[in-house]
Design a protein around this nucleic acid. Sequence first.
RNA 1: GCUUCAUUAGCUCAGUUGGUAGAGCGCUUCACUCGUAAUGAAGAGGUCAUCGGUUCAAGUCCGAUAUGAAGCUCCA
Length: 650
Amino acid sequence: MKITLKDGSVKEYSQAMSVIDIAADISEGLARMACAGEVDGKVVDLRTIIDSDCELSILTFNDEAGKAAYRHTCSHVLAEAVKRLYPEAKLAIGPSIDTGFYYDFDCQSFSREDLDNIEAEMKKVIKEGAEIKRFELPRAEAIQFMEDRNEPYKVELIKDLPEDAIISFYSQGEFTDLCAGPHLMNTKTIKAFKLISSSGAYWRGSEKNKMLTRIYGTAYTKKADLDEHLKHLEEIKLRDHNKLGRQMEIFTTVDVIGQGLPLIMPNGVIIMNELKRWIEDEESKRGYIRTQTPLMAKSDLYKISGHWDHYKEGMFVLGDEEKDKEVFALRPMTCPFQYYVYKASQKSYRDLPCRYGETSTLFRNEDSGEMHGLTRVRQFTISEGHLIVRPDQMVEEFKGCLALAKYCLETLGVESDVTYHLSKWDPEDREKYIGEPEVWEETQQHIREILTELNIQFTEEVGEAAFYGPKVDINAKNVYGKEDTMITIQWDALLAEQFDMYYIDENGEKKRPYIIHRTSLGCYERTLAWLIEKYAGLFPTWLCPEQVRVLPISEKYADYAQKVNEQIVAKGIRSSVDNRAEKIGFKICDARLKRVPYMLVVGEKEKEAGLVSVRSRYEGDEGQKSLDTFIQDICKEIQTKEIREIKVQE
RNA sequence: GCUUCAUUAGCUCAGUUGGUAGAGCGCUUCACUCGUAAUGAAGAGGUCAUCGGUUCAAGUCCGAUAUGAAGCUCCA
């Protein structure tokens, strides 16, 4: 048989060979690094026997699938160590993930000390270097095998496999696990690993099931790579908005005020207000008209919208239906409020599209475990908007919303950090959605075409739609890799009916409009969190709470510093003077720690010549210049919302 | 909501097996009046998250509550 390798070379063998044997035949080094194989594009185990012509790649840790096999094997080592130390622990599942691997056990919870002990035991397992063997059993025997070992979760997994499935096991020494593989040949191949953390996780991801104990870990082929990864984990904590945002006095929380109710501090308010003014002005330029509607409404409104029946749990209800004549609820969305603005007067087809914008504060009673910093809160403010349009205007208006979103992302310098998703309904779960299947398929196809036409890369997600229509979600990851929706644009051909919204067409007949629910920048709190992490607190100048700090060399130059500052402030720039009785080195250090982009040092020389000595975090801005030039430059930078490269610090 | 961990000065954190509190930064005051990453000295500041329990004695042990964190689930 002929084996074509990745580099195009061909090996010929007269007999069937396993992948690992072929790797060994190519080179001993490759056999040592081999984690899995790829035969005609399909990932296979190293033990897979090849008996016919094919294309073969030997996958190492440098290949995604090889890395997965390596880490998956490490998760088996973890499982063996846990079984040795805690024989009563029941095995659940233990896959590899992006950043490493985990294994779920039904057992006690583990402290850091326990994890350290388990790590030590894992090292023993690796040192023993047991060969990893694969074998298959018929279904009934497989079930019996795991029943004998008192592993109920494994039995359940096998029972869920199709009748004709090949049920494979991998064993190393006295440890055997139900597993599809692939795996390394020997446990001693694992060179560097670390158990990261332990937490609870529901069996099969359902809150109705028992909570198991999950151990997260990661593994690399070199200790240096592992150390780098661990260092990276430490570093991302430094840009975590939840820490940095508090440290920079952007927000704080107070226990007696409550969960999910952050206090935005003056620094945070400056950034949020800059964003708000910018968005509101931009929307006005794009033909939006603004509304300001109540933060709460009687239960009657939510009964019409359907929220009272479906989402009451998620709302803050004021009053008791049994006792009170009127019951109110804080609004969890703006939709019906803006619909009534539309309905307040009769609309002609000439009036459409109506683009309503509102900087809208919403309240959602999230479960207590869901709150997180500024990204998941109970009260938040979004750049909300609803476009009431004629069906023939829908596609163009939807594109306009996407263009606005794209403009916002570009201006903030984050367009390369987002992913687009077409959130579709789930035809298998009809109860969750209103409307007919044909309408859903048609609108989804419209959005698909729009995204394709605009050359936007996107994924399609089943079951992620709103109950009234499909949507485009623009998501971003936080520093820990967790994804959140930043912007959403929703196609709604159904709710106008519910609220009896109409317009008069050219024939004098009542017609149903379509509605686009959208945000231009999403929720300000979440965007703020995103920007903190994106820029590690070093915001573009236009968003910096403090843009300029004037640093007099000594108190003798306080007057000049004051004059300089006044001229800068007069231009609407956020500037202050550091008049403390400190050395200039101290003042510079402090201004840097506070992330002030521009420092203006003034002393004898500057005072005499009417200059300022600029020190900034940007390249090529050092040195003396006239105050007028400085003001001109910074005004331009702020006005254009320029994103400048930050100088690399030693 | 679930699992685990945490909560000590404004902030970041020490505090051994139970014997009534410490550091650095910050703040206040004084001295220094300084040329590009941290001047020196002194002082103020804490019912150790809250409530309850065990104990002669609790920051330390136990329980409940609140808040925070990681993960799970959820996110109209």
